[in-house]
């Protein structure tokens, strides 16, 4: 078979990996912040509930979560809840939001209390303090761990094939089943290129945020 045809179909399949990547970030980044507010809430029952949820999600395999979200509804009340791609994205969003929430929490907790108090004595509201004083410092502190998560995410998107989503590894395996094995190895190129771009992007961001110390 013509190599360029193979590459083209793999590129198409990688589009799905990218789609999952983008939608996951789009929803999980803000959702993670909300979960973080829950897990740091001074209202104890809420905090306990959110922390338990985060523990369950982080403590079980993402692959299992994808399976449960896709097949679970059918087992319990007959019928599918979601098509394959949205089901995978939903699982990724929930899973990554929990990881992000912990990164946010670490970042927020690392900001000295004096920063909040300085805002308070200047008469700022709680939301002004959070958005104008704290958040930017948090972003700087969490860029490195976030970069790691982004890289893990693009590679994790391959897990979506457990519910028969035709992403790049699945595509390559189909070739392998027909006796063509090299595409399986070639998938690495796509991931490497993607992570290379991420590395550059985060390097640039870190440099940009490095205009101040602290």
């Amino acid at each position: 078979m013509n190599a360029s045809v193979v590459y083209k179909s793999m590129l198409e399949a990688f589009g799905l990996n990218c789609e999952i990547f983008i939608f996951t970030l789009l929803f999980a980044l803000p959702l993670g912040l909300i979960i973080c507010f829950g897990s740091t809430s001074s209202f104890k029952p809420l905090r306990a509930a959110v922390r338990t949820f985060v523990w369950i999600i982080r403590g079980t395999p993402l692959m299992l979560q994808i399976i449960i979200i896709f097949y679970g509804p059918g087992l319990f009340w007959g019928g599918r809840l979601l098509p394959r791609i949205p089901a995978a994205i939903l699982a990724f969003v929930i899973n990554y939001a929990c990881y992000f929430s912990e990164i946010y929490r670490g970042g927020i907790e690392s900001i000295p209390v004096g920063q909040y108090e300085a805002g308070q004595v200047l008469g700022m509201t709680r939301s002004q303090i959070f958005f104008k004083v704290i958040l930017k410092q948090v972003i700087k502190r969490i860029t490195a761990p976030m970069g790691n998560e982004f890289m893990t995410l693009i590679k994790d998107t391959a897990l979506a094939n457990i519910i028969a989503n035709l992403e790049i590894i699945m595509q390559a395996k189909q070739y392998a089943a027909k006796g063509l094995t090299w595409p399986l190895f070639a998938t690495a190129i796509f991931f490497l290129a993607f992570c290379g771009i991420l590395t550059l992007l985060f390097g640039w961001l870190e440099k940009k945020l490095n205009y101040y110390r602290g």
């Binding site: 004096g114 920063q115 108090e117 300085a118 308070q120 004595v121 008469g123 410092q137 700087k140 101040y212």
Partner: peptide, 18 residues
């Protein structure tokens, strides 16, 4: 509103680094 009647300078400055 009440806080604004007072100002406070901290021992550790607490300037906003960014």
């Amino acid at each position: 509103d009440r806080r604004l009647k007072f100002g406070l300078v901290f021992q550790s400055f607490n300037l906003f680094p960014q």
